[in-house]
Design a protein around this nucleic acid. Structure first.
Length: 120
RNA sequence: CGAGGCGGACGGGCGAUCGCCGGUCGCGAAAGCGGCGGGAGGAAAGUCCGGGCUCCGCAGAGCAGGGCGCUGGGUAACACCCAGUCGGGGCGACCCGAAGGAAAGUGCCACAGAAAUGACACCGCCGAUUCGAUGAGGUCUCCGGAGCUCGUCGAAGGCAAGGGUGAAAUGGUGAGGCAAGAGCUCACCGGCGGCCGGGUGACCGGCCGGCCAGGCAAACCCCGCCCGGAGCAAGACCAAAUAGGAGGGCGUUUUAAAGGCUGCUCGUCCAGCCCUCGGGUUAGCGGUCGCUCGAGGCGCCGGGAAACCGGCGUCCUAGACAGAUGAUCGCCGGAGGUGAAAGCCUCUACAGGACCCGGCUUAUAGUCCGCUCUCGACCC
RNA sequence: GCCCCCGUGGCCCAAUCCGGCAGAGGCAGCCGACUUAAAAUCGGCCCAGGUGUGGGUUCGACUCCCACCGGGGGCA
């Protein structure tokens, strides 16, 4: 995803990670908070420490990022039109590498629905 | 044909859709859009060595400390590479080796064994020589004895072969020699010293001499050579900010304390330095540089036995900063299973740059190439 | 990026420095005593590991050296 839609910086990561865990599924753990509307939805992707080795960690991050990208490109029109956006941190767990891509994409969708429901 | 040895290369391919990070060009006020082109490895890994580069004023001396350790060469340097020597392994092609010094000193060598490193020696062997006792024979005699030959016992003494222990017992085998023995002597082997010859050298060969020297230095150590420290989070520059806060200590135009140059001593530099509390930051939430063109790759020619070096031509080949090179699908390829076949199923390694090079080590499904390399079987 | 430390019975650990029988102790386990019973306490007993893995030096390695694996910690 584009640089502008990425969440960077240690401070933002610390802020989100110290907040309440919003979602915990088989493959992903998600944190989120409302963000500045002008910035758009910003996403930071991390990898669990249980995944060892640079190759596996890269692969897990790439798969998860791609799944989130595909979901975020079709945003819920209600929220984006209302100008409400979110900062989120999503962490890949070992199951990210095991499950099929469609399953992973479905789990990303569940996370985003929870996000929208929680802030409603 | 089978089994090996050595050296080297590769390590998925094509297409479609949706995406990512730099570069460059164009449009645009900007955000951005479009075109072109690029985008992980042989180990990028472990961080085990060696350098470049940067800062520590200069990079200094001695000690301490650390590293290396057959010889010659290569190299920016190395613990690497090439060639050789010696030792070990393999039928062989070949492979492996931290391979200086144990007659500089210290230390250790458990158990067993008489004894473990100046073996003054247990059991044992001998008793030639000397002395004592004694038996037999025979000689001389002044009949008291004296002395000779052979033998036995003991002592003084000689010996280190045999027994047996051990990882290791003062060189091994054989012969001579002797009272018994022993390098006591001789032959061969091994080791040591000297001389001569060959080689740049490690070392090799020959002759002569004499018989003395256990092992461990990946124990301390000695000898020779090498090493200043930290590391790109090194370091440099430009901005911004409530901002260079408070308290204490040591010093200040003076011997310079603290501190910088790992530890100590010397030497040397500087007017500031250190501690506590509070704030900010803490791999990049201020930005830029360092940041990728280099001991560089490829080809040809020349030198060299090789590693490698020189010349010419040609190419530019990641530079991120929560960290890009991806995701999904289809076809093909490879391996395995199943099946008569078509087909179906499963698998397709190890692994991801983070300042850059040269090595080493470790991981790695599988594929291919070269050898006038080796061994075995068969055929002509 | 750089630098340290540690791996030994089921568990916590000695022995490693300076090589010589792999173990002292504690927890846990079993048996007995005390108790109505149990806990605690006391007495006794038992099992199991060849020292994280693979090489090397040595007569001999938990110990020394090298490589690898795993765990923990520190600095900026």
């Amino acid at each position: 995803m584009k640089k502008g839609l990425r969440l960077t910086g240690r401070r933002d990561f610390q802020r989100l990670l110290s907040s309440r865990r919003l979602y915990a599924g088989q493959a992903i753990v998600g944190f989120a908070a409302p963000g500045r509307a002008a910035a758009g939805n910003r996403v930071g992707v991390g990898v669990s420490r249980q995944i060892k080795g640079a190759v596996a960690r890269n692969r897990a991050r790439r798969r998860l990022r791609e799944a989130l990208r595909l979901r975020l490109e079709n945003p819920d029109s209600r929220w984006s039109e209302a100008g409400i956006t979110f900062d989120m941190v999503v962490i890949a767990r070992p199951a990210t590498l095991e499950m099929s891509f469609s399953e992973l994409e479905a789990e990303a969708g569940r996370f985003l629905r929870r996000l929208h429901a929680g802030s409603a």
